[in-house]
């Protein structure tokens, strides 16, 4: 067991004033608005603005604590964050409402677009627009990835891990599961706890899933 004193996770007021104050329909509507207005990816920025700045349901530290959990686990930040925040505010029902709130508008719109596309996928006007959006997306994804990478890369070791991962995924076509269970544990081991060189707590949790 660790000797380190546990850093207390900022607690939401589960049984306190906030838990009683936030009505379920307000949770649903808040996440519905976020889900319906967050264009261009990067839902986390929209979440932060709404939950921390506008609604004041959590402070910056609580938001980053929840984001850290979302980052560490599989899944999209937008949905993981909704589940965590909804649960902290009003338990399982809150989590379910927040999840459906954030996914419903996008799901409805993308499904309508998908149906239109299915009926017109030979229409040159529609495919040319999608080709343009696809090419623009490559530029967007590359910019987001490099911006995050730039903040995260501190050592040659980081760069080596990036190159090994890309090579395995994109050029040797390893299964993602294989990459995760080989590179993952090795990377964690290379950054194992060491008394001589303590790792710094990442105070500015970078949105590693920004391009979801």
């Amino acid at each position: 067991m660790s000797e380190t004193q546990p850093v207390p996770l900022p607690k939401f007021k589960r049984d306190g004033e906030i838990a009683q104050r936030v009505p379920l329909h307000e949770i649903f509507l808040t996440f519905l608005v976020i889900g319906g207005t967050s264009f261009g990816g990067g839902v986390v920025a929209y979440l932060r603005n709404s939950l921390v700045a506008v609604k004041g349901w959590m402070d910056e530290e609580e938001f980053l604590a929840a984001l850290e959990i979302s980052q560490a686990l599989p899944g999209l930040n937008a949905t993981n964050m909704s589940v965590i925040v909804g649960d902290r505010l009003r338990g399982p029902i809150g989590a379910i409402l927040a999840f459906f709130g954030v996914t419903l508008p996008g799901t409805a719109i993308v499904l309508i677009l998908g149906i239109v596309y299915a009926q017109n996928h030979h229409n040159p006007y529609i495919t040319s627009v999608l080709k343009g959006v696809g090419a623009a997306s490559v530029g967007l994804l590359l910019a987001v990835t490099l911006q995050i990478g730039h903040k995260q890369m501190q050592h040659t070791l980081d760069l080596i891990l990036v190159i090994v991962t890309v090579t395995m995924v994109s050029f040797l076509h390893f299964q993602l599961l294989t990459v995760l269970i080989t590179v993952g544990p090795i990377a964690i081991y290379l950054y194992r706890p060491h008394p001589a060189r303590p790792l710094e707590d990442d105070k500015h949790v970078v949105d590693k899933k920004a391009a979801d």
């Binding site: 380190t4 850093v7 560490a72 995050i148 891990l161 993952g184 990377a187 790792l199 590693k208």
Partner: peptide
């Protein structure tokens, strides 16, 4: 939260995630 490995996971997985995103 108390485990010293928490930071190792955060620090170690970051470059892997950048690599996976580049693959995407």
């Amino acid at each position: 939260r108390a485990s010293p490995w928490r930071l190792s996971v955060q620090r170690g997985l970051a470059p892997m995630v950048i690599g996976l995103m580049t693959g995407g």
